[in-house]
Design a binder for these strands. Structure first.
Length: 290
DNA sequence: AGTGTATCCTGCAGGC
DNA sequence: TGCCTGCAGGATACAC
């Protein structure tokens, strides 16, 4: 899934319909999606007002009145879909949890205001929904690395952290404790933009490489947010639309196609059981190769 | 510490 | 058409 740009796009699309709304009911269709169990979720959020919709890493976060946070990790195939009342479009095929909402905008007769639904949809059910108290949320958030699009994510900090690990760069980037929100697609894309081999040990990235990587991560993620995310198969925005960034991918999923920089065929390698895509010419094995 | 493997699941593409 | 295999954006636990 959904990596940072997809979670960000979903969060943005939920703000208008959801913020300020009240959760009037919850239906849990797949209990395995709810970390603390359906009963505790229903008890914990029914009647709560959603104060803000945000994102942390790849997670969509609903901040509730009173300080609790509803954290949604979309796994591989999760969607968060806003369905206005009386929406004529067909309902989601794999609903897992349905939140019924009374919108913030008060009509003259609030009881007449139609409810909408926020549907968590997830065919593979790798996603997880959890309700955290304010303190638990802070603890969880601190376990994640910096937000790559925030000011706290600096080239200097990145260089210092890279130097501490010999794990392959792609694996390092997938570690949510190092940088929050990068997944397999954008890890390959960022490595390509930075001209660093995905299997290069992190500590072998030199100072110039770390500066390029810092810029590349931010550029790729920001571009993908602008494109509304990457739809390969499952991802949709909160409105059910596909993203557009799949048309702008440089190397991910493009084995054998020409590198957009030099024209050499893109290669695919597998390590840690996952594919990485790279250009053998632009991203040589060793930092001072080629 | 880091890596490979397996696990949770379903859907889909490709080969036969 | 149908069966089988492999693969997929994530996260975690385990053995080595």
């Amino acid at each position: 899934m959904p990596e940072l740009p997809e979670a960000e796009t979903i969060a943005r699309g939920l703000r208008a319909p959801v913020e300020g709304g009240t959760i009037t009911g919850v239906s849990v269709l797949h209990a395995d999606l709810v970390e603390m169990g359906p009963a505790a979720l229903v008890r914990g959020i029914t009647g709560a007002i959603i104060e803000a919709v945000g994102r942390r890493g790849k997670n969509v976060v609903l901040r509730l009145e009173g300080g609790d946070h509803l954290v949604v990790n979309l796994g591989m195939s999760g969607r968060l879909l806003w369905r206005p009342a009386h929406d004529p479009s067909p309902p989601p095929s794999h609903p897992g949890v349905v939140f019924r909402l009374r919108p913030a905008a008060q009509t003259p007769n609030p009881r007449a205001a139609p409810e909408g639904e926020l549907v968590y949809h997830d065919p593979r059910r790798f996603g997880r929904i959890r309700l955290l108290t304010q303190g638990a949320y802070r603890t969880w958030s601190r376990s994640l690395g910096p937000e790559p699009l925030s000011r706290g994510f600096t080239a200097r900090r990145l260089a210092l952290e890279l130097a501490r690990s010999r794990t392959p760069l792609r694996s390092w980037l997938l570690d949510q404790g190092k940088v929050a929100g990068v997944g397999n697609i954008y890890a390959s894309e960022a490595c390509h933009v930075a001209r660093l081999h995905p299997a290069l040990p992190a500590s072998e990235v030199d100072a110039a490489g770390a500066r390029r990587l810092h810029r590349a991560i931010r550029r790729v993620l920001a571009e993908a947010v602008e494109g509304g995310g990457t739809t390969l198969r499952d991802y949709r925005t909160a409105q059910g639309w596909e993203g557009a960034y799949q048309h702008s991918l440089r190397v991910y999923g493009r084995e054998g196609e020409p590198c957009p920089r030099c024209g050499r065929p893109v290669r695919r390698i597998v390590f840690s059981n996952r594919s990485a895509f790279y250009c053998p010419r632009c991203q040589p094995e060793l930092p001072n190769d080629g």
